[in-house]
């Protein structure tokens, strides 16, 4: 396994467990692992600028933030509303990563 994909579904800014999960992602990225945080359902709110400092730290440590397009659209969020470094992707992207034998996926 060379990559880690952490999928967060609750808004981590309103969920202590969710924030801890983002911290896990930060530790992994800071240690040099290729780490992506996939935000789905209410977790897409964490991709708003200023929503959660840990997400900014994660990006600063080399992490990648992916935002589920459908979840964001459903919640009236456009890519322009989100962090510039967050990338909006389709569910097919998650499926592809899940099927990649080099990617370990953890869902929270």
């Amino acid at each position: 396994m060379t990559e880690l994909l952490l999928v967060q579904s609750d808004d981590p800014a309103h969920s202590p467990g969710g924030e801890r999960f983002v911290e896990d992602a930060l530790h992994l990225a800071a240690a040099g692992h290729h780490t992506s945080l996939f935000l789905v359902d209410n977790a897409v709110f964490a991709a708003l600028p200023g929503a959660l400092p840990r997400v900014d730290e994660f990006l600063g440590a080399g992490g990648h933030v992916l935002v589920d397009a459908f979840s964001a659209q459903q919640r009236s969020l456009t890519p322009d509303d989100l962090l510039a470094r967050a990338r909006t992707v389709e569910m097919d992207d998650l499926a592809a990563r899940l099927l990649d034998p080099q990617t370990k996926v953890v869902w929270h």
Partner: peptide, 17 residues
């Protein structure tokens, strides 16, 4: 300690919440 277990996730066959 903070982050200690996360840094071991690669070594577990499954990581489930």
């Amino acid at each position: 300690a903070p982050g200690e277990l996360a840094l071991r996730w690669f070594s577990y066959s499954q990581v489930w919440f």
